[in-house]
Nucleic acid binder design. Structure first.
Lengths: 147, 147
DNA sequence: CTAATGGTGGGGAAAAGTGGGGAAAATTTC
DNA sequence: GAAATTTTCCCCACTTTTCCCCACCATTAG
């Protein structure tokens, strides 16, 4: 199964909806049922995981003990920001308000395909992130891929 | 079966009732019979477990020895705060007074989906908790998920 | 040139959250 | 023990939000 790839800048309409690029929709497997689980991303963006992938992640969470303080905090922070959203007939998702606020999204979004997830950014936020964290791609590649 | 997820700020009416978000109600299995067992949370909040999940927890409790002093205390503290509450036709639960008092709840509640339970907070209490326990989520995730 | 595909906008029906009234049950008071 | 008061619970009604569907425009392919 191929991964999500590519990038696009789309509009967010008055109802908080944004289209998912058709290229990325075709990657969704039938088990994903045209549904993403969106959650707070590790940088200031939204992560959208296909439903089947998210289910695997929940299985990992199920193994954690509710009586361990750190694990409890981790599960709380992971789940409280998550929400299942189904694509409408036009291939759009409704972005939850709390996540729109977190990511500082207004009328335009930058949508990235990142292998096992789709990322949704405020375009300006992504530019700031890029210039701040800018590293030489070649150097980065060498460091990461060496292992 | 998916876990509880998401967050919402809802009103508590004059009768001490608060709605459970529809997104979380849909997660309830038929065995839960639209019923939660609410109890004192480990942080200053209310934990609400679906009835079927709570039954599993009681089975665990049943295995503890009544002749072990610490176990006896644990069972006492666990059970004395617990109460079964059924949702009304509008999807609300009546919050037991002792728990409202424990959690410092007034006219608004923050409701969190946390995988196998729903948590009910005074929004302000949660903010205090957050700023007090603030950790880098990324670091926490790495520590917890490593095992 | 026509048809098909992809992104955008909006209207209307349905669902969700909130408030409150009234019957039944429990508690208190006389 | 009966009446009165309080509490609890169930149901109805209103308002807002959400969701589903249809329509439109632009671009691409045949």
């Amino acid at each position: 199964m191929p991964g999500f790839k590519g990038q696009a800048v789309y509009s967010v309409d008055a109802k908080g909806r944004a289209a998912i690029p058709a290229k990325m929709r075709t990657v969704l497997r039938p088990e994903a049922e045209q549904t993403f689980t969106v959650t707070r991303g590790l940088e200031q963006c939204i992560f959208a995981y296909p439903l089947d992938k998210w289910r695997d992640m929940e299985e990992e969470i199920a193994k954690l003990s509710a009586y361990d303080r750190e694990a409890r905090t981790f599960v709380r922070l992971t789940m409280m920001w998550a929400e299942e959203v189904k694509l409408d007939n036009q291939g759009r998702i409704g972005l939850p308000k709390v996540l729109v606020e977190y990511a500082g999204i207004q009328d335009k979004v930058l949508i990235l395909g990142v292998y096992d997830r789709v990322e949704i950014w405020n375009p300006q936020t992504y530019e700031d992130y890029q210039s701040r964290e800018a590293q030489d791609y070649e150097t980065l590649a060498a460091r990461v891929m060496r292992g």
